[in-house]
Each structure stands twice: as structure tokens, then as C-alpha cells.
Design a protein around this nucleic acid. Structure first.
Length: 444
DNA sequence: TCTGGGGTCCTAGGACCC
DNA sequence: TCTGGGGTCCTAGGACCC
């Protein structure tokens, strides 16, 4: 018992707590359905960038056997055979819908952690409410106000809440809400005994295999495993999971999102690219997006990375390479960052390959003006002085793009209508953020 | 023809220092 | 010349998440 106490005092506040996880069902598909009722009752998938593979599936699509991450070319024939509908992903729409959903959910608790685009934790501890009824109210309100179906799981820890949400989603008899905090220990154990350990939050494919080989095959097995042994054989992370399954909250709700420590921007090409100037254009475009994100969170980057690679699915010889370039002075100036990744690209580029993907990363990110040493000789490799003028320029660029729409102002190097741009042939309109596209959709 | 993108955290191992 | 141990810092890679 003292062990439990010391562990929980190190990692979080003591039990009992009540944490809810609210999760949008088939979120991307549900967003599409809100604006296109023809998608109702039909197998629908939303495709990854480049129309590559299915990243969201309606219940009907799951029922006809379409797997998560399945490539589109493998299932496309089901358009004819099963009335399948495949849509390009429309992240502008999804993130707007997400914000609306999170705003509604925030009214149900002063403590909210937005965990991903379609799910958030709410701390319901110490609130004098009927939690199950409240959870149903949450579902009803989100459904009624923005048209998105959800499920709610409640537990004494985040890991329990995740598991409860899984139960609420998979087992219709729970009617969309599973509250473990009102169950007796033996009832919880019976539920956990009926679920595979691989479903636990934090247990992926590799860990699942290793746990199975040790005879730990259900969630209950993991809950009952010796934390010390788990720590020794695996890691402190999985040990924490064991405690969390036991209802000892080790993970706190993080209601403020910390600034990103790295920012990636990368894309697969719509078709192979071999010509260096095209790659330069792509890398310039990606870096512009990454730098925008960097400035939005008020940070500067101390290093950049650029990578290119050919397709790993090709029979042709593979080539992939990356290079990291430290910056003498950390910066958020798109032009400086671009110059560096272009130099890096020239270094790793090899002629004679069909490249399928390129990307850039911003690393060594810190808050602007913190621990930053201004280099007396900061002409840098770029010939661009970090001056107040650069700052003004970036501010103006970001402001114009925020107001007039993305890509209104950009660097010449980004190119105009690049032929390598990703495929998005099955795109739905930006219903909620562009009045012209909404009008078009209504006219259809 | 056609297989996503963007994150975090932990650990092991090497370099370097005393 | 050879022999030791311990600490820190950094990086690369692996595992996980959505």
C-alpha cells in the first residue's frame, strides 16, 4: 500500500477521481454526414492525404470488412459492388467542427484536456452530479447542436476512462455511456477479463506480442501483473499503465497545451518527382507552413531538418536521406529557414531517383526571446540579418494569410499550381468556413 | 498506376570529462 | 603503459498515440 501511495504522490493526485473521455464516433465521416445526408446509412470512408488509404470508416464500411489504414486501390471496386463512398480528407472542415464540439464539452467541466481532434478528457471529480445522466446529456447536446454522435467513458484514471470509452463504443447494451466508477471491483474485473490487452491505451502491436508471450492476454491480466516486474521487463510507462488500470490516477489532465517541441511538415507527392527544382519548390512550401505554425506558438527554431525518399513499396532501389542543420541564431523567419533546408536538400539529393515524399522539421524549438543569444556576426550563411524588418514582414504575411485565406501571400519559390501537388480528387466543400463553397454545395 | 501526416516519450549507446 | 569507474550530455531509434 505504501508503494501505491508513493507512486501516486509522485505522479498525480490521489484517487478517487472521475475522469470522462468523450469521443466522436467515426469523427471525419460524421463531419461529412452533417452536411451531406446522402452519406447516411451507406459505407463511407475518408481517405488520407493523396487519397492514399482509409483513415476513417463509417459503421457500414467497417461492417463490409474495410480495415483501418487500408489502401484505397484495394477497396475502390467496392464503389460498384457495395455502394462504397470514398472522400478526400477535408481537415479545414474537421478542425472547425472539432472546435465547436470542444466548446460545447467545455461547459460540462472546468477541467478539460483536448486530447486529439475528436476526443477530450473532462474531470468530473468532486462534482455533485449523476455522472451517467450527465454523460447522456453531453451526448445529446453534441448531437443536437452540431450533429456529431459521441460515446462517453468514465473511470478513476485516464486509462480507465479510455477503456470505458472502448466499451461504450463496442457494446450497444451500454447505450453510448460506460461509467466504471459506479461498478463494484468484481464487475470491473469481469469486464476487463473479456477485453484483449492490446486494447489498452499505451499497448501497441509490439507490446501486445510481448505481453501475450508472457501469458498476459486480457486487460485483467495486465491489471493484476506485478508492477515491479512490468517495470523491469518493460518500462516505467507500462508500470504506470498497470496502476492506472487499478484506478490509481498517475496521469494528470493537461488543460493547457504546451508549445510544440518539434514541428513537421511533409507530404507524399501526387506523382513521382525526380527534378531538383521541383523538390526545392516542395520543400519551400512545406517550410512556409511549418514556419507559420512556429510563429503562431511564439517560438523560434534552433535547427532544421530536411528529408527526401523514394517509395518504400517500389521494386526500384530505395533511396532515402535526411540532414539536420543547426542554425547559428534561432529564428522564425521563413526566408532564413528556407535557405537552410534548400542547402540541406542540395546536399542529400541524388539524381536518378523517383522521389515520392519530402518533408522538413523544425527542431530545438524554444520560446522567442528566451535563452537566445544574438550573434554579433549574424550575417549567417544566408546573408539575411535578423532584423526588425524581417519580423514585420512575417507578421504582415501571417496576418494577410489569416484574413484572406491560406496561400494568399507566399514566397516565389513555392511555385504556382505545382504539378507534384497531392491528389485530392474526392474533396467535399469547406461548408463551415467558406461561404462561396457552401453556396455551391446547396446548389448541387 | 494507386500504401497518410504529425506528434510525444523513453532508452541505449557513444562522446567526453574527472 | 596500462588500468577503472562514474557522471553528464547528446543523438538516434523505437514504441506509442490519433
Amino acid at each position: 500500500m505504501s508503494e501505491i501511495r508513493s507512486f501516486s504522490s509522485r505522479f498525480g493526485t490521489p484517487s478517487p477521481r472521475a475522469i470522462a473521455l468523450v469521443d466522436g464516433n467515426n469523427f471525419y465521416v460524421s463531419c461529412e454526414r452533417v452536411f451531406n445526408p446522402k452519406l447516411e446509412d451507406r459505407p463511407v470512408v475518408v481517405l488520407s492525404n493523396n487519397d492514399g488509404c482509409a483513415v476513417a470508416r463509417s459503421a457500414e464500411a467497417k461492417a463490409v470488412g474495410i480495415g483501418m489504414g487500408q489502401p484505397w486501390f484495394q477497396i475502390q471496386e467496392m464503389e460498384q459492388t457495395h455502394g462504397l463512398i470514398g472522400l478526400s480528407s477535408n481537415y479545414t472542415l474537421y478542425s472547425d467542427m472539432s472546435q465547436r464540439m470542444m466548446t460545447i464539452l467545455s461547459q460540462f467541466s472546468p477541467q478539460q484536456e483536448v486530447y486529439s481532434i475528436d476526443e477530450c478528457f473532462l474531470d468530473l471529480s468532486g462534482m455533485d452530479i449523476d455522472r451517467t445522466a450527465t454523460a447522456q446529456k453531453i451526448r445529446h447536446q453534441v448531437r443536437q447542436w452540431i450533429g456529431i454522435p459521441t460515446c462517453v467513458g468514465i473511470g478513476s484514471s485516464k486509462t480507465q476512462a479510455k477503456l470505458a470509452n472502448h466499451i461504450a463504443k463496442k457494446r450497444p447494451e451500454w447505450n453510448g455511456v460506460c461509467d466504471l466508477t459506479v461498478l463494484a471491483e468484481h464487475q470491473i474485473d469481469r469486464l476487463m477479463g473479456s477485453i484483449e490487452v492490446g486494447e489498452v491505451w499505451g499497448v501497441g502491436r509490439k507490446l501486445n506480442e510481448q505481453l501475450q508471450s508472457l501469458g498476459i492476454s486480457s486487460v485483467l491480466d495486465l491489471k493484476r501483473a506485478d508492477p515491479k516486474v512490468i517495470r523491469r521487463r518493460f518500462s516505467v510507462v507500462l508500470e504506470r499503465t498497470v496502476w492506472e488500470l487499478r484506478g490509481v490516477a498517475c496521469l494528470n489532465l493537461e488543460d493547457i497545451t504546451p508549445p510544440r517541441q518539434q514541428i513537421i511538415s511533409s507530404r507524399s507527392f501526387g506523382k513521382p518527382v525526380w527534378y531538383l527544382p521541383d523538390l526545392k519548390q516542395a520543400v519551400t512550401t512545406y517550410m512556409s507552413r511549418a514556419a507559420e505554425k512556429l510563429r503562431r506558438q511564439g517560438s523560434v527554431a534552433g535547427a532544421v531538418q530536411v528529408f527526401i525518399r523514394t517509395s518504400p513499396f517500389n521494386t526500384k532501389p530505395f533511396y532515402g536521406n535526411s540532414i539536420t542543420l543547426p542554425l547559428i541564431t534561432a529564428t522564425d523567419d521563413t526566408r532564413v529557414l528556407v535557405k537552410h533546408v534548400i542547402r540541406g536538400l542540395e546536399h542529400i539529393y541524388r539524381a536518378g531517383y523517383d522521389y515520392q515524399k519530402a518533408g522538413v522539421m523544425l527542431l530545438d524549438i524554444r520560446l522567442k526571446g528566451q535563452g537566445q543569444v544574438n550573434d554579433l556576426f549574424a550575417a549567417d550563411m544566408t546573408g539575411l540579418q535578423p532584423t526588425g524588418k524581417a519580423e514585420q514582414l512575417m507578421l504582415v504575411m501571417d496576418a494577410i494569410n489569416a484574413r484572406m485565406g491560406k496561400h494568399t501571400v507566399k514566397l516565389a519559390g513555392e511555385g504556382f499550381k505545382p504539378h507534384w501537388a497531392m491528389k485530392r480528387n474526392r474533396h467535399s466543400p469547406a461548408y463551415t468556413t467558406d461561404i462561396r463553397q457552401l453556396a455551391w454545395a446547396i446548389a448541387q
